[in-house]
Design a protein around this nucleic acid. Sequence first.
DNA 1: GTTAGCATGTAAGGAGTTACATGATTTT
DNA 2: AAAATCATGTAACTCCTTACATGCTAAC
Lengths: 215, 215
Amino acid sequence: MRGRSDVLEPAILGLLHESPMHGYELRKRLNLVLGSFRALSYGSLYPCLKGLVERGWIVGLESTDSGHGVSKRARIVYQLTADGKEHLQQVLSSSGPSTWEDENFDVRFAFFAQTDAETRLRILEGRRTRLTERLETVRQSFARTRERMDEYTLELQRHGLEQVEREVRWLDGLIDNERGRRRVRPTGTGHPTDADSTAAVPQSTPARTTEKERG
Amino acid sequence: MRGRSDVLEPAILGLLHESPMHGYELRKRLNLVLGSFRALSYGSLYPCLKGLVERGWIVGLESTDSGHGVSKRARIVYQLTADGKEHLQQVLSSSGPSTWEDENFDVRFAFFAQTDAETRLRILEGRRTRLTERLETVRQSFARTRERMDEYTLELQRHGLEQVEREVRWLDGLIDNERGRRRVRPTGTGHPTDADSTAAVPQSTPARTTEKERG
DNA sequence: GTTAGCATGTAAGGAGTTACATGATTTT
DNA sequence: AAAATCATGTAACTCCTTACATGCTAAC
């Protein structure tokens, strides 16, 4: 009944740690953080917020005014409680198998700035291992069945493998970077793009884990 | 209650059109066809097969022997009925908006060998348009919010955009190919791999849509 | 003879979606 | 004054997973 997502909850807590927000705004930010640009629905968001309030990790405060003068319609601005902050830090310091799964990895990565260096490295390496394992399995069944497959299926498989291989190389770059070797991102054949600027990941961003407050 | 997937059903029908199979085998093949290598569970597969039988699109025949002599344990080999074949052809000739969504595209592509050329082109172009639209939206919000984002979030976004850009270029190659221009796949920086062979998509595979049988 | 893999299923539940319902505020 | 977009929510439903239950067959 109540949505206890393992993806949504950390994402909401992480965003609210950066700054308090109301649901509608949260949703838009969430859509960028949550993997591949999919649109989260209110039907998931609001019940999840409700659950977080019930567990005492966030509180919702009515706000008629929101800074720039004119009184807008009443909206509920959510923010972390002391318990919520503590819980978030606990979540952010975890690095078990679930963190390197497809659904969870992106969200964890999105909040790496709030994660300590060791945990970052463990997650990146776990993710890398997971992907190379998968690569092995798929390559084998690919080799076994390639004669029986038509060319479209073949192309789909080949493309899928290539995508994962690229992902592994991306992780390699990030891991090297975390270790302080400052390897340059392999831009490869990538056409120049708005997005394709010099966004190299920092050598070591000081983790904000010490910011812990208690109520 | 009964699983009426829009992804699973066409995939099953498509595979059974290639050759009759029992559930266990079907699952393994399905895992390769169904996007990104995820493992489909029996809890989805068998109820879905049941539903397909109920609607008369497939039949399950007990088989104690399976070709090479020794009598194995009883398994249920499923195959398409005449109605099922008809239905499949109808599904395969559709090219509406739903076909170029993330969840559906891969499955449709996997059965392109059974799809006529016009439909193939419409799906590829629809998919391309969908992706470039998404790219535009994300690029804009990326440009608007990049100052406020930490470097990890930035890197995640950049990587996400790059992935989609690459996907668009892949589609460009396929579209050119469908039009008979036989453009060579841009191998780029891709390391040589088992998968990275000469799997160029055919110029034009004759569609088997004329194979239609009636009961 | 016991582990691993083949083979078929069911029941309960999780994580989300769509569609609905409502109303305020801003823009055209 | 109409249309778009902001803002919050609920109910029903979908698709899928996990865990359970069962038993056969091959390999070590």
